[in-house]
Design a binder for these strands. Structure first.
Lengths: 245, 245
DNA sequence: CGCCTGCTTGAAGCGGTTCAATCGGGGTGG
DNA sequence: CCACCCCGATTGAACCGCTTCAAGCAGGCG
């Protein structure tokens, strides 16, 4: 059931029942499970078919020859990877599972048929692709111009809000399946420094960690610290107080 | 005349003559000139209609409250800004002209009609959008994990190769209308440091600058220095020797 | 028990920033 | 025509944020 994608889409407008059924049918056709750490696709591979994340987290990343690695973005439940990607010759980046995954594989012809029959869905998916690009731009700004403290805080804000949009938060708590090495690769920092930044956030009362869960007791404060502007997520208008200025 | 866009597209496959005519007609409909420094769209604005770059350079950027600025990418002749952008609520970044510009404005309905009548063009533009996203990812890697020297070298390689793909290079020379402050904002560095890096590149015989032109006498060497892998540009297979490993 | 993975700590070093001048060339107004 | 100005490029010196290196530590698991 592509319930997270539907939830994300229906922030804006309800999907017509027939389009919803079309999507559900396609997403049920070929469901696959992957283990934590599985590589969905490697740099240089032929692009895979479109995949819809039903459960679990993954990340896109690129590596340099000497081992430096940059995580480019997170793929969360409800995300599509990637509309039209099959048009490209080869993958310029890799994708790896951060947790066990449940994916729906959507072959190219099934996707084209689905989109032809579902104009509202097609528009929603185009919008979602643009929102993914906007996130990529924000990550460029994040690693390019924010300080270490701001970067980590910004990443945590983004994770919380993206999970909230699909109903995967519990009050101020949500999952955080990334270890410190992965946080470092996502923020362009060293593991050691990420460790010290997390301590700073904890001692400032902005973050509690236990296991693979995090709690953000003062999201408004964290947001201010991170210079976080949620506009780039292109969600529906914020209702929550911690998103107002 | 959208000749640079057509050139970029026809790296892969020739456009059917009727589709080419459709595109040329739409691109002739509303042509506008803008001065150097003009803001095409600001952060928070409603997204503009689709615009095709006929001549000139622009950049996308985001700023932080205290004035830090990150240039997110370059818009060059033949680039489209941005397929489907009107689907979003508001701009999450700004775009400003780096040189005088000539643009074709394509209203939403004209674009939809064009794409409906021109399947090959529609596919090419989707592919171009994906290539733009790939460039954005590479920029995230660039500012996240490369050293200052690598970053600047990488940016120069990208500029040269993108211009080459549209026939705007002259041997090893091409335009470079960015000043050092803009290079700094594109690489996430300080102006002072960019200045010193450029001196390093010059004294290593990898770069000559005069005015708003640059020459890259040893592109293969610059590429190696930058850890530059051209795959992310998703051009047709390289013919040039400096692109082979 | 012993090992592995991930987290934590300390200390030294360096890459890049910041601050503060200076320089140079092109354009402008007197 | 020249003095002035302004913007961009350049230089030097001090500083600091983050990295690197090198250990230790804690918890989970075979």
């Amino acid at each position: 059931m592509p319930r997270y994608l539907i939830r994300k889409i229906e922030q804006f407008t309800a999907l017509p029942p027939d389009e919803r059924r079309n999507l559900e049918a396609v997403a049920r056709r070929r469901v696959i499970d992957l283990a934590d750490g599985a590589e969905l696709v490697g740099e240089g591979d032929r692009p895979p078919g479109v995949r819809l994340f039903l459960e679990g987290w993954a990340c896109r990343y690129k590596s340099l020859a000497d081992g430096r690695r940059q995580i480019l973005g997170l793929l969360l439940p409800g995300d599509l990877f990637d509309l039209n990607l099959f048009l490209l010759d080869e993958m310029d980046h890799a994708v790896v599972a951060l947790t066990p995954l449940v994916l729906a594989e959507i072959p190219r012809d099934a996707l084209e048929e689905l989109l032809a029959q579902s104009p509202a869905l097609a528009e929603a998916l185009s919008r979602d692709l643009l929102a993914q690009i906007a996130i990529q731009r924000e990550w460029t700004l994040n690693v390019g111009r924010r300080t270490a403290l701001e970067r980590v805080a910004h990443l945590l804000c983004e994770i919380f809000l993206r999970l909230e949009a699909i109903g995967l938060t519990d009050g101020r708590r949500c999952a955080l399946p990334l270890n410190q090495a992965e946080l470092a690769d996502a923020t362009g920092l060293s593991v050691v420094h990420v460790n010290r930044i997390l301590q700073q956030l904890r001692s400032a009362g902005l973050l509690h960690l236990n296991g693979r869960q995090m709690e953000l007791p003062d999201l408004a404060g964290l947001r201010r610290l991170a210079l976080f502007n949620p506009a780039y997520l292109h969600r529906a208008r914020p209702a929550a107080d911690y998103l107002r200025d």
